[in-house]
Design a binder for these strands. Sequence first.
DNA 1: CTGTTAGCGCCTTCAA
DNA 2: TTGAAGGCGCTAACAG
Lengths: 362, 362
Amino acid sequence: MSGRFSREAISRSSCECPISEGVAVHRRARATLVDVARVAGVSTTTASYVLNDRNDMRISDEAGRRVREAAVTLGYRPNRNALNLRTARTMTVGLISDYLASGHFASRMLSGASAAARTIDHLLVIGESEGDADVETELIAEMLDREVDGILYATLVTSRITLPAGLRDHRVVLLNCVAEDHSVPAVVPDEVDGGRRAARALLEAGHGDGVFVVGEEPEPDALAGPARLAGIRECLMQEGGVELAGVLPCAWAVVPAFEAVSKWLATGARPAALVCLNDRIAMGAYQALDDAGLHVPADVSVVSFDASELASWLNPALTSVAVPYAELGAQAVRMLMSDDVRAGTVVEVPMPVQHGGSVARL
Amino acid sequence: MSGRFSREAISRSSCECPISEGVAVHRRARATLVDVARVAGVSTTTASYVLNDRNDMRISDEAGRRVREAAVTLGYRPNRNALNLRTARTMTVGLISDYLASGHFASRMLSGASAAARTIDHLLVIGESEGDADVETELIAEMLDREVDGILYATLVTSRITLPAGLRDHRVVLLNCVAEDHSVPAVVPDEVDGGRRAARALLEAGHGDGVFVVGEEPEPDALAGPARLAGIRECLMQEGGVELAGVLPCAWAVVPAFEAVSKWLATGARPAALVCLNDRIAMGAYQALDDAGLHVPADVSVVSFDASELASWLNPALTSVAVPYAELGAQAVRMLMSDDVRAGTVVEVPMPVQHGGSVARL
DNA sequence: CTGTTAGCGCCTTCAA
DNA sequence: TTGAAGGCGCTAACAG
């Protein structure tokens, strides 16, 4: 009883404590369930039942009304921390990623994840390891300490990974990567089908012969390149009956692509079409083609992957196979919080083609 | 007492409850302070004091040793939710932004904020409103419910804003925006000085006459453009003794810039140097200059703002004034959590010049 | 130097 | 139909 009174004294005295001499901060100004119950003239139990819409307990209409009214007038919002402690659920999902800052790929995943989380009343807690294993371990511990309801483990580059030890036996979904042993559910782009779609974009415009791929790059853990290439080869053969004309290796960046393509064109190569494994490679290729006096798409058609902003900035705009980052993030959240996450499940999200003006119709 | 025993029974039965037939999840498998105290043979108080390094209470070395040992062997980690409830601090900072997904600007801010938060043992909780006021209100409530220790309110575009009502009287720092009435501490880039630096990059290379600005665009709440322009004008005049030759208005995107510059060049305009108000404008300008047979930097020098990846992709690479996004995020977190946040404080972070090959040395 | 105790705000079993 | 009471895991008076 005395406890109740003292609470009240504290609770209502919205003590404005100034931080230094600037910003003022309300502490304990929020109404608690006890306050609501008191104002409504019922017990906390009753208030709790009403506010949680528990129909199994029959509450008189009158009591229900009074509680709801009190809650509104007091601006009552349940204290999540108390709830967390009580229920051991926090309505948050953690997202641990190696790189958040690089490119707006990561941010699109975040955006999709954030939105999906919000629709199920969860908030996103993020951490960036910057590729540092110690930081990663620390972040994992930090999140588990906070009892996030699940963790998304994401990588910037689609890759094959080993689940960090700290995450084992926890609710985890991999985002943009897969576990070596397929022991963890994962959401990745369907790169092989993406490759097919890139090739199909050329076939549909009447291309077939003289199609070259630019950007093969042997990185052991990167999955996108080989998968895209396989899809391209397969589609060209199965749907066009032609063999891929060749592959020009280069790193996935503008300058290396520019140099590789320039050198190649200098040898007299005259491709009919290029499939660049990402938009930056395509940009380098554009520059090299321009220097060689070749026009896109009149002389050479180009398709690429990523459908990043860059694709729309180039002139002519690139036809590019999009990586559905936002969708990946959203799907991963939904999967993480769904009831039937199965260990081996790997969801492959389709990669839509974004058409530009870089493919000539023959 | 019975409570203690029953706790123990629950606590140690690391009940592995499988989710569907896949992922297994440990519930309550973690050791609690009670467990540690019991194993060490002391009271929870003692254990708490030891683990929190509270020197004001003198604990025997022996007891201290045993507690620490027990904590290690049990892998004890304090339950943050209990701590949150008890201390009304959560060691989290919230970040509410209008757009997270657009460009990698936002993600750089996130990255900087995340890293800074980590150094002070805080985790970042994020929310994206997508420009929707209702979503924003909801996110604010959600974060306050969780008692984040402070909130960063960020905008994608540097702008002047009104603090959302729900944030008033809370610990807030504005990120990349300022309050109309300067009533809230804020961290923004020093755009005027950035403008000076852009102009200085030209002056130092011997330029002065025939400098045009591309990209003036009258958006009432956007601060960057006018500030950059003012800095450019001021520096040109004060340090170079010349008047800015002119301003070519256009939207801040590649295609509009391409069109505006093309049309302008078609009228016979022959600028000596262009200051493009962002990198995308510069890209459009490059394309237009190229079409007109003008070379960068031989015929026209170009400097711009943002120092985005794009600046390094262009050929020649752009000399561009960087927006220190990561630094903004980091500073904002530090400011938010520092003890002396003053209402009116506006921290202006310097914008470093990133040199490329787009300025000819005269 | 160490243990007992009373909550933080909430949910929920049990009894009335 | 409602209320009292216990406890989630932790900290901090206050006793001993």
